[in-house]
């Protein structure tokens, strides 16, 4: 190289000094990078962090005692209890449903499969208000089965069953959606192997299928739980805002806010926000764990 340069008349030593820093083709100029990062951080701070912090600030405005007093209120306790109940019913139900749906879609061949996948996505696609309205139309007094239900003294709308139904509806895609792509990728060979070794369907499911999808399952459950606790729209339609009876935490926040009780509203909201933050933390931990497992597998795969 040096020889070639000197023979063509270049001063090799000067050229070597002037040589620019080596960089990748996709590398940007430093100020572009800095600008991008600054804009993102500012945007997040202004729209996300400041409001979130202000919720906590507002909640603690009149001191820690008042903050905690907001939770000892009978209606607040009822709201927390109802939220936990709705989550406690809808999350296990949708876990079971999600597993069944994912199993059916990925391990069997049948007609109308793509239609089923589309239907599972429906709650993601329609507005939560519509989801709530559907239940009012079906189970309300003027609805298809409303009259029959009221004759038998069963109340669904403006009662706890309606809240649970609406929560189940809006959370049912989460688990199935997490599992389907993974199970599709994993295929059916391991299940076939288990069956050929004499395992029953149940043993195959418990010992082979479930362990293979456990992280995706947990991830789906975490997301479904976050949505179940935070759902507002669908639940608002079927609830009727009966304090102490059909108010969930998000609805309770709204009620308090409408009554200009900002401290109490912020206190309950801060609890919801905290739930969200914890969910995010668990989600990140799961993601990190899955990625690490995946990389470990990939490293030994390539060796």
């Amino acid at each position: 190289m040096e020889l070639a340069l000197t023979t063509t008349g270049f001063e090799a030593s000067n050229w070597a000094h002037a040589r620019p820093r080596l960089k990748a083709a996709t590398e940007e100029k430093p100020w572009v990078r800095l600008a991008c990062i600054t804009v993102t951080v500012l945007f997040l701070a202004l729209l996300l962090f400041v409001p979130l912090a202000s919720v906590f600030a507002e909640a603690f405005r009149e001191g820690v005692r008042v903050y905690f007093a907001s939770f000892s209120d009978r209606y607040a306790i009822a709201a927390i209890r109802l939220t936990l109940l709705a989550a406690a019913i809808s999350v296990p139900l949708n876990t079971a449903f999600g597993l069944t749906a994912a199993w059916a879609i990925t391990k069997f061949q049948f007609r109308g499969k793509s239609l089923l996948i589309t239907l599972i996505d429906l709650p993601f696609a329609v507005s939560p208000i519509v989801s709530g309205l559907i239940y009012v139309l079906v189970f309300g007094m003027q609805g298809w089965v409303g009259a029959w239900l009221s004759e038998h003294n069963i109340q669904v709308i403006f009662a706890v069953p309606g809240i649970v139904l609406a929560t189940v509806f809006v959370t049912f895609p989460f688990v199935a959606r997490e599992l389907i792509p993974l199970m599709q990728e994993q295929g059916t060979e391991e299940e076939e192997a288990a069956t050929s070794l004499g395992a029953s369907g149940w043993q195959t499911f418990m010992k082979v299928t479930l362990p293979n999808v456990k992280w995706a399952l947990l991830y789906g459950v975490i997301l479904a739980n976050a949505r179940a606790m935070g759902e507002f729209g669908a639940v608002a339609v079927v609830s009727g805002h009966l304090r102490g009876k059909t108010n969930t935490m998000p609805l309770h926040v709204e009620t308090l806010y409408n009554e200009y009780n900002f401290v109490a509203a912020s206190a309950v909201a801060s609890l919801l926000a905290l739930l969200g933050l914890v969910t995010l933390a668990i989600k990140s931990a799961v993601e990190w764990k899955v990625r690490r497992d995946y990389e470990a597998a990939a490293v030994s795969e390539s060796s």
Binding site: E189, A193, S196, K207, V208
Partner: peptide, 10 residues
Amino acid sequence: FVFQHYALFR
């Protein structure tokens, strides 16, 4: 049965 892609339980 021995599968083409081994189908070992990972």
